[in-house]
Amino acid sequence: MKNRKIAIAIGIVLLVFSYLVYGGVKEAKVYYLTVTELKERMPSVYREKVRVSGKVVPGSIKKEEDGGLRFRISDGNETIEVRYKGVVPDIFRDGVEAIVEGKYSPENVFFANVLLAKCPTKYESADELLKNKKENT
């Protein structure tokens, strides 16, 4: 049967696929944690690459001499100190939901090599929209 050759070839392609996906996941996986979860995993997490999200603590953003950035993020429960150098997203500022990726060091500083900021959702309730206006005027 000629179709058997095709079937074998398809099988090989699928195997290669699975290998690529498996290897890719293994290499690229990053745990996505809240600040509290990070603290809970404290000793083991030090060497792992993780992604942490939390609100930027208002007033904590400081610029360093070398152009780097220092700030704290919090999930309302726990807070960590973050250091970052690189492109800062336009929407990054006090109170915004920030996502950092990098490693947590034993000195309790998070060294981030990726900084993302989530767009505050446009769809607030009508009440909030009205309240906002009053404060501004």
Partner: peptide
């Protein structure tokens, strides 16, 4: 959908970033 699946299956949110997509899609 990896973060969603991993959260449902293992209770942990795990992301796969650009390295995953590049590694898989460049050979493809």
């Amino acid at each position: 959908i990896f973060p969603i699946v991993s959260e449902v299956v293992r209770g942990e949110k795990i992301l796969v970033g650009p390295p995953y997509f590049n590694r898989v899609n460049v050979p493809i």
